[in-house]
Amino acid sequence: MEDLFKLLRPDFRVPEPSFPGRIVEVVLGSTRGEGGSSRHSLKVGGARALPFYSSETKKPILASIVYDSPEPLPSIIREELGSLVGDPVKWAKHCLDSGAEAVSLKLQGIKGCSADLRDELEGLIHRLLDEVQLPLIISTVDAERSAELLTMAAEAAEGERCMLAPATLGGDYKVLVEAALKYDHSIVAETDCDPTSQRTINQKLLDMGLDRTRLLMDPTSAALGLGIEYSVSTMEQMRLDALRGDESLQFPMAILRALEGAWKAREALDPDVSPNPTLMGPLWEAHTGLALYLAGADLLAILHPRTLSILRSLLADFAAEGELRNGSS
């Protein structure tokens, strides 16, 4: 008896979790062949379990955040990026070179009256599409002008299958859905760590005629040290509910805010905390991204180029171990 295990050497596997539900796959970006300008298109989502609970685990899509103005950036990032800040196209090219799979363009600085603004925004988006050729996630920071700006951006990027963000319960989501339908984009519905309002906003967007393959969720902005437990618990709960069959939550999670939120943590920047803030900051952001990926995130928008390279090299190991599939097509 005692050497039975040794003799048989059973290849032990706990049964794979088998859930009835599956996360929808949303396509981001449109290649030349598909009528767009991206060098590749990406499939976001498609999970059947939480990462590493099943043998079919996908790596997250890594997008780089690019601001149209230097205003909201922590000084350490401004110093790091130097002349790239203030030149979104150059900045996005740099992200491409560092291995970003998509660009998360955050509109913050565009000001002025409507006509000028339209030209400026259109110019920026066309240049990004032509010169960088990465799929675009376009979001706004200023809630008041969000619908106006995103509609203009959606038109400028017609047919490119971008993501538009954010659709919020308090905001003008109807305008956003119309723009997405008209110009062929998907939408990121945003809530703050609350599954109930996430279900509500998702349902409202779908009721307006948005296709299920055009909806993503951003349920959190809490980074490490700033309440990441809420992010982790909410995301795991939502993902498990979705896999168990809750159709109103079966959408990929695109985390556009939480990683840059890591730079709000005192630990990320304060030289009193770490004598090496050029390491600590990106590491803090990477920890945030990794934890949220394990909690179910399908796409991470990353602020610091070094964070991108840290996560990329860690995830490259994964692929090498044969545990991961890639999302690119």
Binding site: L224, G225, G227, I228, E229, V232, E267, V273, S274, P275, N276, L279, M280, L283, W284, H287, A291
Partner: peptide, 15 residues
């Protein structure tokens, strides 16, 4: 090093 330990402790405290 603090860069190794502080994120781990912070995550532990949270979870």
């Amino acid at each position: 090093s603090i860069e190794n330990l502080l994120p781990i402790y912070t995550l532990r405290q949270a979870l």
